[in-house]
Nucleic acid binder design. Structure first.
Length: 264
DNA sequence: ATGGTGGGTAGCCCA
């Protein structure tokens, strides 16, 4: 059995205490972090090593974005893509080298896309769409059994958001983004593991804005984080959980971790 | 309809 977690941590240095708590309590084999907001030189390697997570692939950037995959089972860095073609650190891929040998885990942080869902008025929205288009070209050429996880910054289903009608013109849930994400999915035949285990139309959120008070009461969440797998790999997924309680931990991220277990 | 809260980092950018 191998378990893989994904968590947009919104500064790994600030939140190392809750990361340590998560690794101690849940002990996933692999943890994919997004928005680490640091370069490799100041990544807290020692803290991860002390917890038994001695294998790392870090693609960092000063102040913004950045992704890291840490593991207690052996892996090697496999790829780094710049799907936005602007030098931002939003992807790192690893390949498992012993247990689960040959399995590729791609860790991605899709651009949020700004506030206005129109590429003419908002450069960031165009960059988000272009990022996804390049990711789609790449997905069509995948050969290894692949798990792609991370903050996709799109909530595709009506049951992935607190209010479908209210959010149709809000970046992350527009029909155009949903369509572009679907093309990416179809390019490789990815399976949405989260929704294999928590079926539509059951409520499934992974992010609650810091700006919304009483997140548990108002529950204005969205499912921005995903774990998608090649069909053969998805068939080996035996469990999937959303750790909503982490949203209430001290100095929380606005995202919560997802964990999938595989019979590998 | 608006602004609301966070993080990184040094005057804003980004989410």
């Amino acid at each position: 059995m191998i378990s893989v977690a994904s968590w947009n941590i919104n500064s790994v240095r600030l939140r190392m205490p809750i990361v340590a708590r998560f690794l101690t309590e849940e002990a996933p084999d692999v943890l994919c972090l997004q928005e680490i907001k640091t370069v490799e030189e100041t990544f807290p390697f020692e803290a991860f090593n002390a917890l038994g997570y001695t294998h790392h692939a870090v693609h960092g950037q000063k102040g913004y974005h950045g992704v890291a995959t840490v593991s207690r089972i052996p892996l090697k860095e496999y790829s780094r893509h710049d799907w936005q073609d602007n030098g931002e650190a939003r992807h790192v891929g690893v390949e498992l080298t012993e247990q689960g040998k040959g399995t590729v885990i791609e860790n991605v942080y899709v651009p949020a896309g700004g506030d206005i869902p129109d590429r003419e008025q908002n450069v960031k929205f165009g960059q988000k769409l272009d990022f996804l288009a390049r990711m789609t070209d790449w997905a069509g050429k995948i050969e290894a059994p692949t798990l792609i996880v991370g903050d996709f910054n799109i909530a595709p289903l009506p049951s992935d958001v607190w209010g479908h009608k209210q959010l149709l013109k809000v970046v992350s849930h527009t029909p155009l983004e949903v369509q572009v994400l679907q093309k990416f999915k179809d390019a490789h035949g990815f399976i949405d593991i989260g929704r294999e285990h928590i079926r539509d139309p059951e409520r499934y959120f992974s992010w609650w804005s810091y700006r919304s008070k009483d997140w548990r009461v108002n529950d204005r969440g969205r499912r921005l984080d995903h774990m998608w797998a090649s069909p053969d790999l998805a068939a080996k997924s035996t469990g999937h959980r959303v750790l909503e309680d982490c949203r209430d931990w001290e100095k929380p991220s606005d995202h919560v971790p997802l964990i999938t277990e595989f019979d590998l």
